[in-house]
């Protein structure tokens, strides 16, 4: 069976032979074994339009496996010595040094308690090592990273939904944003934090995100209109 881009693949499907001469990247869902390329997850076999980058787009995934340089949202579960332990939904808790915050020194510790939410970047994510987080960029600035303010709401969703809503042309946030002002943090680990002016608005945004998972653009517009109409009564 010959598999081309756009086909449905199942684990174990032989996709082709590795070409030594061509520079090709085999991304998630693919593995090279004895010069043969196999699929390891089920989904659609895809290629990035502008690069020789192939991957398998899975249809449903919930468990997060840390990947270096991804932004994740986690809950601080433990404070011990000079590190925080952060639950990011992976098999192991990630560590976050208290020096990895903007303006933090040995004397000036960040004010973070157990149970707080942090939005952080993974700097170490290897299968043999504990994942490590930072809340600063390479210039020592916090940017969008850091502890999240109080009063928001966090929920978990599938990793596919997260990837979907982080696409530049995803319509939901713009449509909702015309009438509701809200803040949102989306972690690649399937955790989303939302804070709007009122609690009903926060709930509405959360539900809209979850409900939009399998909707088309027109359906999203329609749903957003209904949500805004409902909120007017609150």
């Amino acid at each position: 069976m010959h598999i081309t881009v756009g086909d449905v693949v199942l684990p174990g499907d032989l996709i082709g032979e590795q070409d030594e001469l061509k520079k090709v990247v085999y991304g998630p869902g693919l593995r090279v074994h004895q010069n043969q390329i196999y699929a390891v997850t089920s989904g659609i076999f895809k290629k990035k339009p502008d690069a020789n980058y192939y991957y398998v787009d899975t249809f449903h995934q919930k468990r997060y496996v840390p990947v270096r340089s991804e932004d994740v949202l986690g809950v601080v579960t433990n404070k011990s010595g000079d590190i925080f332990k952060v639950d990011i939904g992976s098999s192991e808790q990630a560590s976050l040094s208290y020096l990895a915050f903007e303006g933090a020194t040995k004397k000036n510790r960040p004010d973070i308690q157990v149970g707080d939410l942090v939005f952080a970047k993974l700097v170490v994510a290897s299968r043999d090592m504990e994942p490590e987080l930072v809340c600063v960029d390479s210039y020592g600035k916090k940017g969008k990273l850091g502890p999240l303010p109080e009063g928001g709401f966090v929920f978990s969703c599938s990793l596919n939904l997260v990837r979907k809503i982080l696409k530049k042309d995803y319509p939901l946030f713009n449509v909702l944003g015309k009438d509701i002002s809200y803040e949102i943090s989306v972690g690649m680990n399937g955790k989303v934090w939302v804070k709007a002016a009122t609690i009903p608005q926060t709930i509405a945004v959360c539900n809209a995100i979850l409900a939009a998972e399998h909707k088309t653009k027109d359906e999203i517009d329609e749903m957003s209109k209904q949500i805004l109409k409902m909120l007017a009564y609150c």
Binding site: P11, T41, T58, H60, R63
Partner: peptide
């Protein structure tokens, strides 16, 4: 297992 998206050699 397939639904969870974990890497598998084959089904």
């Amino acid at each position: 297992l397939m639904d969870s998206g974990i890497a598998m050699k084959f089904l």
